[in-house]
C-alpha cells in the first residue's frame, strides 16, 4: 500500500481535486467555502507527485463540485484535475479550464467601475493570459493578475 493511501482513505462518493498547485489547497478550501460544509474533507499538502514536484490534494465526501466552484478552482489552480467519485471509482475526470470570460465570481477592484455601482450588473472579466494569469474587467478595463484576484 502506498504512503498516500495510508495517510488518507479512499472515499466512497464525492470529489477528489488532484494536482492542486502546491500550498494552494488551503486557499481552495477557503475560497470554495468547503470547510464550512458538514461533510468530511481531507486536505493533503505538499504531496510528492510524478507530474509536478509537489502538489496538494483535497478529498470531499458526498459532494460534487458545481460549475461555479470549478471555475473558481480554475483561477486558483489551472492545472488541477477534478475526479468525481461514485462507489469508490472515478465516475468522471474533469480537466478544468479557465473560460474566456469569467462572470460573477471575481470582484472588480476599481470602486468607480460601473459594475460596482449599478444594481443587477454582474462582474465580467476577459482572460488575457492563461500561463501568467491575467484577466481584464470588460467594463473599466482594469487588469488583474493571480495575486490580486478577489473572489465574490
Amino acid at each position: 500500500m502506498s504512503d498516500n493511501l495510508l495517510r488518507v482513505q479512499p472515499i466512497r462518493n464525492g470529489t477528489v481535486i488532484d494536482h492542486i498547485k502546491a500550498s494552494r489547497g488551503k486557499k481552495v478550501l477557503d475560497i470554495l467555502n468547503l470547510s464550512g460544509s458538514d461533510t468530511t474533507i481531507s486536505l493533503l499538502i505538499n504531496v510528492q507527485s510524478k507530474i509536478q514536484k509537489r502538489k496538494d490534494i483535497i478529498k470531499i465526501e458526498d459532494r460534487e463540485l458545481n460549475e461555479i466552484e470549478i471555475e473558481k478552482l480554475a483561477l486558483l489552480s489551472p492545472d488541477a484535475i477534478v475526479n468525481i467519485i461514485r462507489n469508490y471509482s472515478v465516475a468522471d475526470k474533469i480537466k478544468i479550464e479557465i473560460p474566456e470570460f469569467i462572470s460573477e465570481i471575481v470582484h472588480c477592484p476599481n470602486e468607480n467601475c460601473i459594475c460596482n455601482n449599478e444594481r443587477s450588473v454582474s462582474t465580467n472579466f476577459k482572460l488575457l493570459n492563461k500561463e501568467n494569469l491575467q484577466i481584464k474587467c470588460t467594463y473599466c478595463g482594469r487588469k488583474m493578475d493571480e495575486e490580486n484576484i478577489n473572489f465574490i
Binding site: N110, N112, C113, E118, T138
Partner: peptide, 10 residues
Amino acid sequence: RHPREGAAKL
C-alpha cells in the same frame, strides 16, 4: 457621458 468607468460598455 457618465462619471463611472465602463458605463458606456454597459
